[in-house]
Amino acid sequence: MSRGWNMKPLSLTSALTLACLAAGPALAANSVSFVAVTGNDTRNCATPATACRTFQRAHDATSPHGEIIALTPGDFRPLTIAKSISVTGVEGAGVFGGASRLVTVEAGPTDVVHLAGLTLDGGSLSNTAVHMGSARDVTLRQCAIRNFMRWGLSTGAVSQALIEDMSVSVIGSDPGLNLWAPTLVHRVVARAARGSALVAGNTGVTVSESSFADSANGVDAFGPVYMTRSAVTGNSVNGFRGAITSAGDNFIRGNGSGGSGTITTIGAQ
């Protein structure tokens, strides 16, 4: 008696199942994913021992509202964010050039994105560090942004944003911070060598304990700007343009023309 294969035609379902299995095991999404410069994108990112190599691979392997942790310093390559997620780096972890834009947020209208502890370095070649194209809420904290030809941060269709404990430096003629969403700017140092350190759009920006210095213009206000305990100094053309509502405790001095806008001082409460 023959023991040869008794072949029957495969059903469509069976064929698809086999095709999926042949393509590799399906990966369950992690609530926490890890990346390291010693990692590998063929891994599942789910533990420090199986860390991946790039932010993008980790993003794709992580469930909504999950966390990506960078375990080592190093370049984890440009990232496009399409869902609620948090990305946190150790000192020296980030993205170092390699694309026109290093982080792009194109998430849904209810999505929440947190970025913390990242260094984004354009290497005097990249245009933009972070473009917040769409999301409900984007937070950047404790990040360093430097050496970009155009924008440090720019906002699009974002409902609200928080930028805190950051340094932002760009070397072109565009703004360091280009904010067209309701944004809280807290403890931020921004500089745009040939542009405006801060452009505040028509949706309202609140600035506290921040510095906008050594740029062409310190603050360009196209809408409401509320400012307290901040310094606008050493800007070669203008300290500020447009209207600022001030607590009366800011320091706006040593700029090119001393300011071509208006300050309304409402005092403290």
């Binding site: 409402i266 403290a268 409460q269």
Partner: peptide, 24 residues
């Protein structure tokens, strides 16, 4: 009570509501 050194501004409806609420 307030030390009168807060910045309560840029809130969309009211910063402080002395009509419906008690003052600081």
């Amino acid at each position: 009570e307030t030390a009168h050194d807060n910045f309560i501004a840029g809130n969309t409806t009211t910063d402080l509501d002395p009509v419906n609420g008690a003052p600081l």
